[in-house]
Design a binder for these strands. Structure first.
Lengths: 282, 282
DNA sequence: CAGGGACGATACCCTGACGGTATCGCCGCA
DNA sequence: TGCGGCGATACCGTCAGGGTATCGTCCCTG
C-alpha cells in the first residue's frame, strides 16, 4: 500500500464526501473515486458504503482510518526526523522539545537548566504550542520529546515519566462572590452562566461552538478572566502567573493533572534520554 | 514520502550494496540508484556515503533506516488489520494471538479457557511461531496480541501486562555429572564444551554460526538434549514438558524471565481488551 | 603498469499509472 | 418531470518509474 493511497482514503473517510475530499487533496474527483475502489479491490474489502445520498465507513474502513492515520504519522515522522538529523558533524545537533505555551514554566526552566549542565548536552529547541498540539508534533516527528498533561493529552504509544501531579484551581476575577471561599466544587464553577469556559481554536483554526469568548493566547485568557468574561480552570502551578486582578480557588473534586515528559518509545536519541534523566533528577 | 521509496531505501541500507538491494527488490540497479538519489535530493540530506568500494550510512541514513522500518511496519499493519476486519457482520470476527511454540503452554490454556468463558468472546486464532517472531507479527498487524518474554523480546512500543515471572533451569541429559547438583551457576553450564547451546534458524531460514547443533522444533531440541548433544536453558515452567531422559537444574544467577501479554498501544479491539482482562484474572 | 572486474552513476527509451475533462446514471426533490 | 447533487465510467495525455546499454572510477593482480 502506498502512502498516497492512504492519504486519499483518510481524506475521504474524514470528509465522507468524494468531492470535498478531492478538493482537499488538490485533485479532481474521478481519479479519487478510482483510487479508492482500486484500493478496495486490492485489499479485497469494502471500505466505504455508498448508498445514494451518503457515504459511510464500513467496519474495515474504520480500522483503516485508525491504523492508516497512525501509519501516515509514522511515515511523516521518519521524514521529519531524517531531515532534522544533522549530516554527520556538520551543523550542531539539537533536540526539539514541545510544550504547551504558558504551562509548567518553572518546571521547564529547571529542566532545561539541569540538562544544559550535563556533559554532552546539545541545544534544545523549545516549541511552544497550543493545547493538544504537542502530541501531534511528537507523533509526526516534528518534536523529539514533549511535556504533556494527563488526562488532557493522549499518551498512548508514548513512553513517559511523571514529573508532577497537582490539583486544579478555578481562576476568578477579584471581587467575585466565590473568591471568599477557600475551596469550591467543580459543578459550582462550571455551571456559572456569567462565567463560561473560553473557547480555543482547533487545529484547523476554527472555533468550537459555545457561549464562551474566543481566545488565542494566554495573555488574552488572563485578560478575559480579569474582565469577568470567562472562567479559567488551571493546574495549581499556574497561580504563580496570576496578578492581583485574579483570584485562584482550589477545586476539591477536579481530577488531578499529571505533568509528564513523553517521547516515542523507539527513540534512540541520547539527547532525549539525557533530557528525561535530567527531568527526573530535577 | 512514498512507501516504495522507503522500501527501496531500507533495502539498500540493509544490504549496503545497490546491486544486491536491487536484486532483492526485483528491479534493476539503475532505477534504484536514481530513486535513492532523488530521495536524498527531496529530503535535502545525504543518506549514504558512497566512497569507492563501500556504501555506508550517514547519521541521517541511520535515522531513516530506524524510523523507516517502524513506518513500513505501521503501513503493513494497517493493511493487514484492514484485511482481517470482518466486513460488518459477514463472517465471524476473530483475534489473532501469537505465541512462541512450546512456551507457556499451561498458562496459555488457562488464558484461552478464561477468555472463552467471557460473554461476547470471539474465536482466538493462535499462531505458534519461532522465538522472536511474535514481535514481528504484532508490529506488522498479522497478530492482534502476543505472548512475549522479557528480556528476550523487544517490548518497546507495546502496551503490556505481566503474567508470570520465573527463573531459568539448565536442561541436562540424565546421568550428566551436573545433574547431582541442586543448583548451578550460569557460567558453569554455558562454558561446557561438550554441551553447546543449540542454533535456531533466523527469519531468513539460515542458521547462525557456532558449535551447537541445528534445530527446527522443540521436539528436536528435547531429543538433542536427551542425546547429550546440546544444552537447553529454559524457563522454569518448561520442566513440565520434560521426560525421564532429561533433568532440570535451576540456574541461580540467570536473569528472571517475565511472560507478558502485549498488544499495540492504539488497539481499539474489544476482543483484545477482553483477552488481556481474562489473562490478568486467570 | 596495463588489464580486468566490481560497482555505482548516467544516458536514453518505453510503458503504464495517474491525473484531467466530459459525461453518464442514479436518486431525491421541487 | 425536470433539475441538481454526487459518485462512477470513458477516454485521453503526460511523466514518473522501470529497463538496457554504457561510462567512470577504483582496486586488485599478474
Amino acid at each position: 500500500m502506498e502512502t498516497r493511497e492512504l492519504r486519499y482514503f483518510v481524506a475521504v473517510a474524514e470528509e465522507l464526501h468524494f468531492g470535498r475530499a478531492a478538493q482537499r487533496l488538490g485533485i479532481a474527483q474521478p481519479p479519487l473515486s478510482r483510487a479508492i475502489s482500486q484500493l478496495e479491490r486490492r485489499l479485497g474489502v469494502a471500505l466505504l458504503k455508498r448508498d445514494s445520498r451518503a457515504v459511510t465507513l464500513t467496519e474495515a474502513g474504520a480500522v483503516l482510518l485508525h491504523e492508516g492515520r497512525a501509519a501516515l504519522d509514522a511515515v511523516e515522522a521518519a521524514e521529519q526526523r531524517t531531515r532534522r538529523a544533522a549530516p554527520a558533524g556538520t551543523g550542531h545537533a539539537s533536540v526539539v522539545l514541545a510544550t504547551k505555551a504558558g504551562a509548567s514554566g518553572e518546571l521547564l526552566a529547571k529542566l532545561l537548566h539541569a540538562y544544559a549542565a550535563e556533559p554532552g548536552s546539545v541545544d534544545v529547541d523549545v516549541v511552544l504550542c497550543g493545547p493538544g498540539e504537542q502530541e501531534r508534533l511528537l507523533r509526526t516527528g516534528r518534536a523529539d520529546v514533549a511535556i504533556l498533561h494527563h488526562p488532557f493529552d493522549d499518551l498512548t504509544g508514548f513512553d513517559t515519566e511523571e514529573l508532577l501531579t497537582e490539583g486544579q484551581v478555578a481562576v476568578l476575577p477579584a471581587g467575585h462572590p466565590l473568591t471568599t471561599r477557600t475551596s469550591v466544587q467543580l459543578n459550582e464553577v462550571t455551571d456559572l452562566p456569567d462565567l463560561p469556559l473560553p473557547r480555543w481554536p482547533g487545529v484547523d483554526g476554527s472555533y468550537p461552538d459555545g457561549p464562551g469568548p474566543e481566545a488565542q493566547s494566554h495573555s488574552q485568557l488572563f485578560q478575559l478572566a480579569a474582565l469577568g468574561r470567562t472562567l479559567l480552570v488551571l493546574p495549581d502551578s499556574a497561580r504563580s502567573q496570576l496578578n492581583d486582578d485574579l483570584v485562584a480557588v482550589p477545586i476539591v473534586d477536579a481530577p488531578d493533572v499529571t505533568t509528564v515528559i513523553a517521547w516515542p518509545p523507539h527513540s534512540r536519541s541520547r539527547a532525549v534520554a539525557d533530557l528525561v534523566r535530567a527531568a527526573l533528577r530535577r
